[in-house]
Every structure is written in structure tokens, then in C-alpha cells.
């Protein structure tokens, strides 16, 4: 029964209170199967990042239920969230958000060390994943020495290292040219299929839609049926 990675029921999120309150999610119902490669698309301001943040356990929902691999996210104390992130989530951010002071391999090793791997184990695994994304010759370099596409591949490696069940990506191709964007997405798709990750990608980029097992559309804080193809 539990091959569901994500289960959302009546999920809402309201930012602020009183006169300034703004409801960014207005009741989301969604199920994502384990191993699914899902894309979340929709106009700017529709609530995609908000939804992704709740799935990533960096933001608490206001109402409704959110269950991740059988684990409730709603009604959690803020202090419980970091541990959930370590257990379940690998992030790929819009910029690439690598740590400039760390070498490429140390950037990838860091989340592994936060999960208790020894330095040696972490480096072995980091180098392994970096070879898988085609960066075995850049492991000692620093992020500032790399091109945008290379940096985003490091970000992919950092997200999948350690094999967390859920990979979340917010506009991973936004800062890349079309070709590089395709390559990075293809890489993410290949790795997640091989390694059994569930993936949710927020994107505007219609040139990568075809990688998705399913595309979910959002508008004004609600999921909507796919607009009719022209």
C-alpha cells in the first residue's frame, strides 16, 4: 500500500497574519508515487516554491495534511525539521548555492558528513557521484572555477549523494542555456532512475517537460488540469 512518496490533503499555506495575511496555497491534494519524476509548472506567484518548501521540510504548512513516505509533516515542531531533511531530502536550488570556500568534493561530502559518514566514506561517495555526473577532473576545484553548467552538475551530485529518497529542484535550469539545461535535467533523470529517487522539479522551462513522468500544473495556489495543448 505504501508506494506513495508524497500525499497531500487540503494543504494550505498562509504567509503573514491579519491584514497582511496572504494565502499562497489554497488547498492542495496531491499524490506522488515512489520513484516518480514529477514536474510542477505554473505562472509566477502561483505557489510552486511554497509547495516545494513544504515538501522540503523548510516550511510548515498552515492547514491540511502532508505525509512524506508515511511520515507526517504537519503539526511538527520547527526543531524537528532539520532531521527530517537529513533523512529524506536532497535539494537542488535555483542558483546553485554551493559553498564557495569548499572544494567541489567537499561540497558534495558535506551533507554526507552531516548524516554521520566519516570523512573518508564521505569523500569516497562524493567522488563516486562526481564521476557519475562527469566531473571527475574537477573534484579539487572550487565552485568559482567552474562554469554554470558544471556548478549545477555539482549541485545534482550533492543532492543525490547519500541516496535520500526525495530530490527537490527549484528551477534547476533557470540560469543555464537551453542545451546545458537539457543535459543537466537528463543527468538528473538518469541518476534518479538508476538510484531509485523520487523527484519533484519546479520549472518554467518547457524544453525539459518531456523528461517528466507526470506534469502537474498550478495556478493561484491550486492544482489545475493541464491547459489544453494549442
Amino acid at each position: 500500500m505504501n508506494d506513495l512518496a508524497i500525499e497531500l490533503r487540503g494543504l494550505t499555506k498562509t504567509y503573514g497574519t491579519g491584514a497582511l495575511a496572504f494565502q499562497a496555497l489554497k488547498g492542495i491534494d496531491l499524490q506522488v508515487k515512489t520513484g516518480e519524476f514529477m514536474m510542477l509548472v505554473g505562472p509566477s506567484g502561483s505557489g510552486k516554491t511554497t509547495l516545494l518548501s513544504i515538501l522540503g521540510c523548510v516550511l510548515s504548512p498552515t492547514e491540511g495534511e502532508a505525509v512524506l513516505f508515511g511520515e507526517k509533516l504537519h503539526g511538527r515542531k520547527e526543531s524537528e525539521l532539520p532531521d527530517l531533511r537529513l533523512s529524506y531530502i536532497g535539494f537542488i536550488f535555483q542558483g546553485n548555492n554551493l559553498i564557495p570556500a569548499l572544494s567541489v568534493e567537499d561540497n558534495v561530502a558535506f551533507p554526507l558528513e552531516l548524516r554521520g559518514a566519516s570523512r573518508k566514506q564521505a569523500l569516497i561517495e562524493a567522488r563516486d557521484v562526481l564521476s557519475a555526473v562527469g566531473l571527475s577532473d574537477k573534484m579539487k576545484r572550487h565552485p568559482n572555477d567552474l562554469s554554470g553548467g558544471q556548478r549545477q552538475r555539482v549541485a545534482v551530485a550533492r543532492a543525490v549523494a547519500g541516496r535520500p529518497p526525495l530530490i527537490l529542484a527549484d528551477e534547476p535550469t533557470a540560469s543555464l542555456d537551453a542545451h546545458t539545461g537539457q543535459q543537466v535535467t537528463e543527468l538528473l533523470k538518469k541518476l534518479s532512475t538508476e538510484r531509485g529517487h523520487t523527484v519533484v522539479v519546479v520549472t518554467h522551462d518547457n524544453r525539459i517537460f518531456h523528461f517528466a513522468d507526470r506534469t502537474v500544473h498550478m495556478e493561484d495556489g491550486l492544482l489545475v488540469p493541464a491547459p489544453a495543448q494549442p
Partner: peptide, 23 residues
């Protein structure tokens, strides 16, 4: 392919300090 599983391991006292101190 078997689905990725939750990662429950965490660093001990010393390793946690070492990791964050190094960074």
C-alpha cells in the same frame, strides 16, 4: 531499481564538531 531509503544515521558528538568546525 529498489527505492532509496530514509537515511537515519547521524554524526556523533566529535564528528559533528569536526565537520562544522572544518567548514
Amino acid at each position: 531499481m529498489k527505492a532509496a531509503q530514509p537515511i537515519r544515521t547521524r554524526p556523533g558528538f566529535f564528528r559533528r564538531w569536526l565537520t562544522l568546525g572544518t567548514i
